[in-house]
Design a protein around this nucleic acid. Structure first.
Lengths: 219, 219
DNA sequence: CGATGACTTGAACGCCATCAATCGCTGTGG
DNA sequence: CCACAGCGATTGATGGCGTTCAAGTCATCG
């Protein structure tokens, strides 16, 4: 199950400088809806999405949920400095993940500044995303939030313009601090304005026709 | 103006492992309301609050403001991995700051894993705070937000129970994603319930009488 | 004193949430 | 093959929480 992968030519782009070190990794599959790790559980591994999609969230005691991030192919998540995870991570779709033992990474990091630097860079990228999301959650209107979401996803897709969203309206709502109805209404409004259209029978295939229109709404 | 400070016995607690290295620091004073650095400005220094208080915020084009954090004595802020600041920082009260040239820190960090590790730890602490704040902004009610704010500040004061808040109601509102009126109403409600009281003529001296009451509201 | 600014309090409004009905697609079983 | 249950999503009607607008209080400062 476990295999070495130190060949730079084979390494995926986003794992970045971690691969120059001698760390072992293995791949696992998770079915849609399966939990990868839970909040406050020990952080023994860090993860990279090979295929599929993952959501990370926090819960309040009464079930209110805030999704902090969606993780798409190439993304790394579950990286902690402390001993425990601070989010629950679940597979949104059938997903393949690459796992790296945290211990093996820490061992390398002890003596190699470049590896610690790589960890710092990943943490900073993370931080930057969350900081921007804080502004969205604290101060943006519902339309601005949905527009921002579409632009974010559009930018993260391989081919911008057409995107097959892996997440449900509920996931989007919990990411944006809204309800599914409000998300749905915003999407319908954008469609009415000609900023986007749906593809196929399902409503998760979205084509952005006028990014500039969305960008204008996102202020 | 600039002076060496490598004596461990003199170093303030929170600067942590940065001080074991040979980095120079200097102190400056900022009057109330003065900007320390602006969003997108080059990040040439990192800062530690010696005395006073600082707020960090982002702005939308139309003036809506989201405060990401308050920095109190001992706190470090303005630490960036990239070349530019991602927040604007302003002195809330008359404030004394210790400045460390980022360049000198980076030089040390190149060869010293412990220093990079210290930077990583600070960034992670930052991240954790912002992640929790995201849950607050996305999913908590106004009363929960204000209760959480009071508990946070109470925990950060030297003597818990009585606190002299350096920030205005507007600052609190922009930190919590609310309006000043809503913050004021929540505080009045908590006072009515006997969870807190005001001290003196000003309304910024708050005594928390029943933290458990606030904790219960914060769910 | 009058002016100013920070804060509180009251009244009315509006955005988003809530409640509810419907649609469309999928899968399942008679 | 069709009836129907179930789920996700949309759409409509209503309601409520927090905002907006406005007035009033209190402390500070000229």
């Amino acid at each position: 199950m476990e295999k070495r992968n130190t060949d730079p030519s084979k390494r995926p782009s986003k794992f970045g400088d971690l691969y120059h070190a001698n760390v072992s990794s293995s791949e696992f599959k998770y079915n849609k809806g399966i939990r990868i790790f839970g909040e406050t559980e020990p952080a023994d591994y860090i993860y990279q999405v090979v295929e599929g999609a993952v959501r990370s969230h926090k819960l309040l005691s009464d079930g209110r949920r805030q999704i902090g991030a969606f993780h798409l192919p190439g993304d790394i998540f579950g990286l902690e400095n402390g001993d425990f995870h601070r989010f629950t991570a679940e597979a949104i779709a059938d997903t393949t993940l690459r796992l790296v033992k945290r211990e093996s990474l820490e061992r390398v990091a002890k003596s190699d500044p470049a590896t610690v630097r790589a960890l710092l860079t990943m943490t900073t990228d993370n931080l930057q995303h969350v900081e921007n999301h804080m502004l969205l959650l604290g101060r943006k209107t519902s339309q601005e939030r949905v527009a921002a979401f579409l632009l974010e996803m559009n930018g993260r897709m391989k081919e911008p313009g057409c995107m097959a969203l892996p997440m449900s309206r509920r996931d989007i709502a919990d990411y944006l601090g809204l309800t599914i109805e409000t998300v749905s209404r915003a999407l319908s409004e954008f469609k009415r304005k000609g900023y986007l259209k749906f593809l196929g029978s399902t409503q998760r295939q979205i084509v952005v026709l006028k990014p500039s229109g969305l960008a204008e709404i996102d202020s």
